[in-house]
């Protein structure tokens, strides 16, 4: 069963073909990673799938429905949630409020009841607060809940973004380099977290540079180079693929094989 299906997806920036004819599928509970050298078009691909960029070509299907070019907030309503490579934290809000904002779709209600602080508004906020606190606990940020988000370390902010994305209770989660800038311990924590999320039936689409992490947790890997898909398959298949090795480290294949293996 497929949750997310991408077919022939492409986009140009000016004359540059940033992404061209990329296709793959993600099933519930599956972890699919998109890898490739810098500038291969991984983040651009993510931005198209999450509705931030309008694709120039191709089709995106979510749960059997065509969602190509749909706005991010509509996609969120359909259960698609994401994190960002260059953090997009709500800096002037507290850590807890950041996580609470992830519950927006469930907690939004009549503005009038929010303006007058009616019981329904307070009830919605209370439910959200409990839910967000649970998620902060899960990513190890419970003790920082009341701090201003801008005071957190880079690794902690990465985890906060994951907590916010999980607050949507997504059916598919897009993680853009969740382990970038994190130390070994933090990477391992994120590793566990992703595996746990997938186990609960959420489809995970991952962009990550940490090859050890990718090889360990992915069910399926899609390799991009210069905007095109050059290989696809299980971690074992992909790491032996000569085109992948070449794309990663030019012609110094032996070294590349070592890095990927």
């Amino acid at each position: 069963m497929t949750l997310l299906q991408v077919e022939g997806l492409g986009i140009d920036f000016g004359g540059l073909r940033a992404v061209n004819d990329v296709g793959f599928a993600v099933a519930p509970g599956e972890i699919v990673s998109v890898i490739g050298p810098n500038g291969a078009g991984k983040t651009t691909l993510f931005n198209m799938i999450s509705g931030v960029y309008l694709p120039g070509r191709g089709k995106i299907t979510l749960d059997g429905r065509d969602v190509t070019g749909m706005a991010p907030n509509r996609l969120a309503e359909r259960g698609l949630s994401r994190t960002f490579q260059n953090l997009q934290i709500f800096q002037r809000m507290s850590v807890l409020e950041n996580a609470m904002t992830g519950c927006h779709l469930k907690e939004r209600g009549a503005i009038l009841s929010d303006l007058l602080c009616l019981p329904s508004s307070r009830r919605r906020s209370a439910v959200t607060k409990a839910r967000a606190s649970e998620l902060l606990e899960r990513v190890g940020l419970a003790r920082a809940a009341e701090h201003e988000a801008s005071s957190l370390s880079y690794g902690a902010l990465k985890r906060l973004e994951i907590a916010r994305a999980l607050a949507l209770e997504p059916r598919i989660l897009l993680l853009d380099e969740p382990a970038a800038g994190c130390n070994a311990v933090e990477t391992e924590e994120i590793d566990h977290l992703i595996a746990e999320v997938a186990k609960s039936g959420v489809a995970v689409l991952l962009v990550e540079h940490d090859m050890k992490l990718v090889m360990r947790i992915s069910n399926h890997i899609v390799v991009l180079d210069r905007g095109e898909k050059i290989a696809e398959g299980s971690p074992a298949t992909v790491s032996r693929d000569p085109r992948v090795i070449e794309a990663y480290l030019g012609t110094q294949g032996a070294e590349a094989g070592h890095a990927l293996g």
């Binding site: 931030v52 706005a71 907030n73 996609l75 002037r92 992830g102």
Partner: peptide, 14 residues
Amino acid sequence: RALHDSEVAARTVG
């Protein structure tokens, strides 16, 4: 306040 700090992130949470 969320859309004030990051419109794109606000959009992606719905």
